[in-house]
Every structure is written in C-alpha cells, then in structure tokens.
Amino acid sequence: MRIFYHPILGKLEEKRKITLEVDGKKIAAYEGEPIAAALLAAGIRVLRMSPKREEPRGVFCAIGRCTDCVMIVDGQPNVRTCVTPARDGMKIQTQKGLGKWAKKL
C-alpha cells in the first residue's frame, strides 16, 4: 500500500508512472523507485524461493547488503531489487533457487 498522505512528508509527489511485468502480470510503478518498493506497493512480498528448501524470502535490509530480495530482472538472476531502479517495461520473475540465466554462460 502506498502512503498517499503522510503527516510529515505531505502528499505523495506525482512521478512518471511506468509498467512492470511481474511473473507475466502487469503492475504499475513509479520510474526510478526500487523494484522491491514497487512490488511491495502492489502487495507482492515474496520475491524468491530459497535454493535448498524452497522457502519464501522477501525484503530484509533494503540497502542492498543482504541479497535476500534478489529476483530475475530481464533475464538476469540475482538482481538486488531493493537497490535496482524500476524502468518501464522491465520483466521481473520470482527467482526459484539460483534462477535461470537468459544469457548463455
């Protein structure tokens, strides 16, 4: 849920709206906000499944240190969504385990 009105920060500033594709579904986001914030605003809190036990993981540190929020972004796994700015048309997938690499290794 977005905080449209904040008693100290005031009204939410209008920014350019963009569209992200998350696991095939389209969601709205603001340009430049971290992908994780856009997903949280859309109510998506599980970002990946852990490799060994396939347990759900979400945002933990939000400053790019813990790598708990990594997802597959435009075919590249292990992208830290909490510090990666959202750009229009990005394709984002829930990362299962190590994820699939679009680029050949």
Binding site: P51, N78, L98, K100, W101, L105
Partner: peptide, 12 residues
Amino acid sequence: EIAMITEALPEL
C-alpha cells in the same frame, strides 16, 4: 594466493 567467489551460478 588470492581468491574470489562469484554469485551462485547454474551448473557450468
């Protein structure tokens, strides 16, 4: 000797 480790990758 020095060493580095990458992020986890699929089986190479």
